[in-house]
Design a protein around this nucleic acid. Structure first.
Length: 419
RNA sequence: CCGAUUCCUUACCGGG
């Protein structure tokens, strides 16, 4: 008999996580049970693929088979709960960990901090993190980064900067990632000057700016309606020996599109190939959106056809085109694309439905719009407030106020608040 | 016997 650890490891490393999980599962009840290392390996692989529910089910099976989890297993479980936003479950596991003398590590705290932030629980997050700070001398740079990123994403730049100073005081040295997080935070608040100040500090420290730094700053410029500065920043970087990746190019393309230079954007496409940095689906989506917004539906469809040679269209690709056609007054074509999505093995998401519904509403075809609403409900896709707004708008324009009111009521029942 | 496995962080595109 041989240990199947290496076989399962190979399966995981080659992306056959499903198969690995199955093999582990069947070996749980074999005469030689797998080691916790093997279990952790598969749980980690599922978690990396964001298949948190599967990981948790597998964990259930593992404990049921009587295999004792270690601190890594439990960290993974905590992380799965956090990623799914189930903070009460996550805390329950955390409490059990501490009760059984598994000492939580930076990974545990980082996962929980991220979970608290993602679910908007600012106070809990700060409280939890403070507790960690008091009890632990070695909060590492990653945990600080998670915390700073969470604070930034909740718009609390002051707290984030406080942490940045605190980590220096505690002799935990900020890395590029720390800077990138803060730079993005300031960009999103429209404080580009602060962002650029940090960028220069990063350069002076010799930590080295990376592709994330560049794409972040450039995107900051684009979002602040300063696409020219984004383009300039890009070329200055090239001059300093910076080597862009596909995301940086994507931001550049987006910037060029925003200044109405779709032809230049298409030139960048060629440059990307020359640099051995081929475009991806986002690149094409960006260009298609640009063409659509310029009303060039014909060209947009050409790009759509050509992109298929090198990339797989996504739901975003379709929604972009569908919106373009709707705005162009051609809802039929949008609906045709909607029905074409399954050919690319895509399932229309809430945005796709929203676009078609809005298009139909704007044409006054309320019955057809309702048909799509029912279709999405049948397919278990929950309409969001944008879908409802489109419908309510449509009814209001027709003077059908009662129908509009009914929809508002339906919204509230679903816990969506009208804005 | 040893080793083996592991867990946490940052950037780009679509709708009212």
């Amino acid at each position: 008999y041989f240990n199947n650890h290496h076989h399962i490891q190979t399966l995981c490393n080659t992306g056959n996580v499903e198969e690995a999980a199955q093999e582990l599962h069947s070996s749980l009840h074999a005469s030689y049970e797998p080691s916790i290392y093997t279990c952790n390996l598969v749980l980690g692989a599922l978690s990396k693929q964001k298949r948190y529910q599967s990981a948790l089910s597998l964990y259930q099976a593992i404990s049921h088979a009587g295999i004792t989890p270690d601190h890594i297993t439990l960290n993974t479980v905590v992380n799965c709960h956090c990623q799914m936003g189930d903070m009460s479950f996550a805390m329950k596991v955390f409490d059990e960990m501490t009760a059984h003398n598994y000492s939580p590590s930076n990974a545990t705290f980082a996962a929980l901090v991220k979970g608290f932030c993602r679910t908007g629980k600012l106070a809990e997050c700060i409280e939890f993190f403070s507790k960690f700070l008091k009890e632990n001398y070695s909060v590492d740079v990653t945990t600080y980064n998670v915390m700073m990123d969470g604070m930034c994403k909740m718009g609390n730049l002051k707290e984030a900067m406080g942490l940045f100073e605190l980590m220096a005081k505690n002799e935990c040295f900020a890395d590029v990632c720390s800077y990138n997080i803060l730079i993005r935070g300031f960009c999103k608040q429209g404080m580009l000057n602060k962002a650029l100040q940090l960028f220069h500090e990063l350069e002076e420290k010799g930590l080295g700016c990376d592709v994330v730094t560049y794409s972040t700053v450039m995107d900051g410029f684009v979002k602040e309606n300063r696409p020219h500065d984004a383009v300039r920043f890009f070329y200055e970087g090239l001059h300093k020996g910076f080597r862009p990746n596909v995301v940086v190019y994507n931001v550049l393309v987006n910037g060029l599109c925003k200044i109405g230079e779709s032809s230049q954007a298409l030139e960048v496409l060629d440059e990307m190939y020359e640099q051995g940095c081929g475009p991806n689906v986002v690149t094409f989506n960006t260009i298609i959106d640009c063409l659509c917004k310029e009303g060039k539906m014909r060209e947009a469809m050409d790009v759509f056809d050509k992109m298929k040679e090198v990339a797989i269209p996504s739901a975003v690709t379709y929604s972009t085109l569908m919106d373009g056609f709707c705005k162009d007054g051609n809802v039929d074509e949008a609906i045709r694309l909607f029905h074409q999505m399954p050919d690319d093995e895509l399932v229309p998401d809430v945005v796709c439905y929203g676009i078609v519904i809005d298009g139909l509403c704007k044409q006054g075809c309320m019955n057809d719009a309702i048909h799509f609403l029912l279709l999405m409900l049948k397919r278990k896709i929950s309409p969001d407030s944008i879908v409802y707004s489109a419908l309510i708008n449509g009814y209001c324009k027709q003077g059908k106020l009662q129908e509009a009111r009914n929809l508002m009521q339906e919204m509230r029942e679903k816990g969506l608040r009208p804005d």
